[in-house]
Design a protein around this nucleic acid. Sequence first.
DNA 1: CGCTAGCTTGACACAGGTCAAAGGCTGTGG
DNA 2: CCACAGCCTTTGACCTGTGTCAAGCTAGCG
Lengths: 256, 256
Amino acid sequence: MQPRASGASASLMTAVVLRRLNALKTLSPAQLQRLAPLGERTEVVAPGAILQSEGGAPIRPSFILSGWACRQRLLRDGRRQIFSLLIPGDALGFHIEPRPLSRISAVALTKVVLASAEPLLGASISSGPHASAANESGAFDEHMRLSTCLEDGLLLDHVVRLGRQTAYERTAHLLLELHWRWSLIGPVDDRRFIMPLTQEVIADFLGLSIVHVNRTLQQLRREGLIEMSGSQVGLLDLAQLTVIADYQPQVLHPTP
Amino acid sequence: MQPRASGASASLMTAVVLRRLNALKTLSPAQLQRLAPLGERTEVVAPGAILQSEGGAPIRPSFILSGWACRQRLLRDGRRQIFSLLIPGDALGFHIEPRPLSRISAVALTKVVLASAEPLLGASISSGPHASAANESGAFDEHMRLSTCLEDGLLLDHVVRLGRQTAYERTAHLLLELHWRWSLIGPVDDRRFIMPLTQEVIADFLGLSIVHVNRTLQQLRREGLIEMSGSQVGLLDLAQLTVIADYQPQVLHPTP
DNA sequence: CGCTAGCTTGACACAGGTCAAAGGCTGTGG
DNA sequence: CCACAGCCTTTGACCTGTGTCAAGCTAGCG
């Protein structure tokens, strides 16, 4: 799946997290320094593994260094709805407050490498009389707040997709969203990126059947809008896809 | 719409807010006292009025004393998706942090009476050295946090509804949700409550067409599961509706 | 008392689901 | 190095849930 993901050095993989945090809000030198030990404590999780179950113990705060995961809920009869797709750079287990989305069950979709986020939490917790000083010197409250807002914003887009868009529009929208998110964690090479998702996962995310996802992707390919080979996707006509999906990238709210 | 809503005294209407807050977390005597002046500054809004537009100025913190509103987004071509329905007792305009859902456009669906929530904010804002004392004496941070969590939880249910449930299931689910929320703000008399929504609004909430909402409601009536007359709904078979909708009421997380 | 907004109905179209089977890949073990 | 197993993708045939269009109907309201 991830080409030589396991071979990549930890520092190379943590770069993803740095870029992601930096995209939300510029990292200060002090913060960069605090992030140095990030790749030291990592954990590898097998595909299909449950990172967190609904109502169960929350996962420890961590970042995805590589691999994909999702948040999901199952209906009694086995139908599954995926709420969000988690890609490298995304955070998991930050329960700043027990917001419902972060208590939903989370599952690894591929092999996932997690980095513990302990180094970031130190400062946030010690919010004593020197709280503001701690902030200056490297706390990440604001970054995690923005990250939460981003995820919530994506969830709102998801509601619109599911409620008011056709399969064709939904699929285009999803691809644009992933393309945009991918651009947060690194330059996207020629509008191509890796999407190691089975059509079943895409179906459970977009509220469609597997077969119909297959046909919709084919249609997009046939029309020259996208290109797929293996788990690599290429968006050949961003402009038209954007029109089809009525896509508007998330706005990252800076603090007023 | 609301039977003699305009005739009800302000104190009678604010009782709804008290019950709602109290349902989330028991109100202390000090807090009750702080809430006394709640009905003093009210504002009446006409149906269809825009309470807040997406990306526009946020509405001042307030509670709905009577009437219904919704949060929604429009697509370029006019399609509408409603994210949440707001009923009496619900809060609006509490941007504890700029969470995306509270920046979405909000619209009055009926005549709405709002009560300014200024009295509650006083304490929250003055979070100086005596912050904890202020908390004791009447701040409502915890209540508003729980309220936010509740709304987010409902949004997650909404995603499942839209993505993985049939029209029939969605409709049953919505009715159960409203029934449950109604029970937070007062005893529900014989499983009957007021739902002053046009079928168009229900359609835009559930991601269906008006015509299909109409037929689905008829089916539920024909099968003796619900009863409707005017804007009053009666749930005749809670147990079966719950099975049909795979409904599980929200869990209100107390603070650990 | 006519108008308008909302509800209801019927006929029909079509997006999307279901079922079933045939092809790829890829990894694994003989 | 081949063969098998398992998972994914792809295809075709067919079905059905839901949308669309269009026309009455009802009832509150000016």
